[in-house]
């Protein structure tokens, strides 16, 4: 599991956007987060001009991070089904870009009404009933054959270039894990300085919801290894490309 370093790319060409960040502190954190994410060989886009700007950045990220599959075989995308993503109309955007939206995007409500995401932990769930098991199986195979996963995040850490992903009925573990590329949308206000600062936000979540999510994943760049002669390589298991779009929408 040894890791070595190699830098990714920052896309910050849109002029003037940094000025919209307002106060100095927030701007510093955004800059630091992007720099560190890119240093971990992730990709970063800054899109602070509202919904359209964020949609433009998603299109750009999808184009940059996902190779064409060839004629007649559309690229696949999976996304979280969180309400936060609804205003961006990802299915519309990605279909127009020639992507096939396999889940999340076509799964309005996401949870299928099976349970309350924020409910306190319950007793042991029984084995999933047949229909649900089949649906889960299918969904996971679709995720495994997807090119791109799109999620938001709960917070991000400037110092380390880290995003935090909480599992919930509308926010699965797999869209950020199985596709070849993963892109996460991060709001500037979600960026904190340090890991302990982020963990304090997790503690707040726990206090408000009466418990922790079943899975929280901190992600810092793309999957990496140095296990072959100490040589840096990305994507041995998780995404080969990991992007963040820092935006307001």
């Amino acid at each position: 599991m040894v890791a070595a370093a190699q830098a990714g790319v920052a896309h910050m060409s849109r002029t003037g956007v940094v000025d919209r960040l307002g106060q100095e502190g927030a701007r510093g954190l955004v800059q630091e987060f992007m720099n560190n994410w890119v240093a971990l060989s992730g990709d970063a886009w800054l899109a602070l001009g509202g919904v359209d700007d964020v949609r433009r950045a998603i299109a750009e990220a999808a184009g940059a991070m996902v190779a064409e599959r060839g004629p007649g075989s559309p690229r696949r995308v999976v996304a979280w089904a969180t309400e936060e993503l609804a205003p961006l109309d990802l299915p519309g955007l990605l279909t127009s870009l020639g992507f096939e939206c396999v889940w999340g995007t076509d799964w309005s409500g996401g949870a299928g009404g099976e349970g309350d995401p924020s409910a306190a932990p319950t007793a042991r769930p029984a084995d999933a009933p047949g229909a649900t098991a089949a649906a889960l199986w299918q969904r996971r195979n679709l995720a495994a054959t997807s090119d791109l996963g799109i999620t938001t995040c709960s917070w991000a850490v400037a110092e380390t270039g880290t995003i935090a992903l909480y599992a919930s009925p509308s926010a699965g573990r797999l869209p950020s894990l199985l596709p070849t590329a993963h892109v996460a949308l991060v709001r500037p206000s979600q960026i904190v300085r340090s890991i302990p600062d982020g963990l304090r936000l997790l503690a707040d979540h726990r206090a408000q919801r009466g418990g922790l999510p079943s899975a929280v994943n901190l992600v810092s760049g793309p999957s990496r290894t140095g296990d072959i002669e100490g040589d840096f390589a990305v994507g041995v298991h998780g995404p080969r490309r990991a992007g963040v779009i820092i935006g307001e929408w």
Partner: peptide, 18 residues
């Protein structure tokens, strides 16, 4: 920090997709 840090609290909850 390592690339992935996971905090796992119990199995999948009702309604979760994976």
């Amino acid at each position: 920090i390592s690339t992935y840090t996971s905090f796992i609290t119990g199995p999948r909850r009702p309604g979760e997709l994976d």
